[in-house]
Each structure stands twice: as C-alpha cells, then as structure tokens.
Design a protein around this nucleic acid. Structure first.
Length: 198
DNA sequence: ATTTTCAAT
C-alpha cells in the first residue's frame, strides 16, 4: 500500500461547499458541521487536531438511513473514547442550528458526560419544526454555549476547515449582507434564549 | 427580486 498522507493531514472542505452551505442568506437542504476538540488543562486549552474535521448529514437516498449532522457527531464522539478523567471542549460550527430532536440528544450527551463542554456556532436558525426554540434553550440550560456565527467564526472556519490553496483565495470573501444577517440572527437567538416559555 | 429549512411535522 502506498504511503498515504501524514496522519495529521486532514481533509479540508471545498471552498464552494463552504460558501454555499454556510451562507446565512440561503436555505440549503443539507447541513454541514465543522468540529474541533480541545483538552482543558487548568486555565489552558490544548487543541487535539486528531479530532478536528467536518461532516454533513446523511441524506435521503432511497431506503438509506438518514441522519442529522449532530447525530453523526455524537457517534464520532463516542468512538473517540475521550478520557472521563479529563476535561474537553468541543466547538461546532454548524450550517443549521440543531432541530429539537438533535437538541435533546445533545442534552442527553452533556448530562452523561460532565467532562465535555460544548459550544455551537450556527450559521442559520433551523426553525422548521415547532419546539426549535425550546430545544435551543434546553441546550443552553444544559451548559452548551449556543450562538450564531459572526464574521469572526466565518473567518475562523475559512482558515481552519476550508481548502483554499491559491493565494488569491486566502481571505474569506465577505459575502454581501452576511454580517448584517448574522447580527439579525444573533438578536433573534438572544430573544429565543432569554424567553422563559418553558 | 424571488426563493425557504439536516426527507417523511
């Protein structure tokens, strides 16, 4: 077998895939999720690059199982067998915020794994199903940070998860209205999280 | 200028 890439070489996301799926001005019918893990040691955090990557939901090809992105993340997490004696922070950048069911699953995971802290930055609010607000609040109440992606997170993802070999493509191309839309969504999310409906 | 949402609310 030919020598493969070094173990630390990770697959990066195609530029256009990122732009198409993380744009907060569109409504793609799939979800991408970038994730990274840090080990928390005292006041410090150590990036664990072997647990850095991205995934997307498993679609609906006839008869095949479909699965939301968050559930795939939880499967990967389980496979890593993170040390229960240590503390970790998982940061996700997801193109759609978690649906109510996925929010429940994440809450269950957090309850069972007190050594894992979770941060979720979403490009858009997935408000298709009733209960999405309560789901986001439940996540928040379970200790997860839930926020919208701002320009800072878009740039971070671009620099850390996206393949832009050519120099001319290096800086994140600021999409029209992306920042304004992000601010709008952040205000809306803040309202959702502060609401005490349930 | 528009559109609408990880198949199946």
């Amino acid at each position: 077998m030919a020598a493969g890439p070094a173990p630390e070489a990770r697959l990066l996301m195609d530029k256009q895939t990122f732009l198409d799926n993380f744009s907060n001005l569109d409504y793609p019918r799939k979800t991408y999720l970038c994730y990274e893990v840090e080990l928390l040691v005292g006041e410090n955090s150590i990036p664990l690059d072997e647990y850095k990557g991205f995934l997307h939901n498993k679609g609906a090809a006839m008869g095949l199982e479909h699965r939301h992105a968050e559930l795939i993340l939880l499967e990967r997490l389980a496979s890593w067998n993170l040390d229960m004696e240590l503390r970790y922070r998982i940061t996700c950048f997801t193109s759609w915020s978690p649906c109510p069911d996925c929010a429940d699953e994440l809450v269950n995971f957090l309850r069972a794994n007190g050594h894992v802290y979770l941060r979720i930055f979403a490009a858009r609010i997935y408000d298709r199903f009733p209960g999405y607000e309560a789901g986001l609040r439940a996540l928040n109440a379970a200790g997860a940070e839930v926020a919208m992606m701002t320009l800072q997170e878009f740039e971070y993802c671009w620099n850390n998860f996206v393949d832009h070999q050519q120099d001319e493509d290096k800086p994140f191309p600021p999409l029209d209205n992306l920042v304004a839309r992000s601010e709008e969504l952040s205000q809306r999310l803040e309202g959702i999280l502060q609401n005490q409906e349930d």
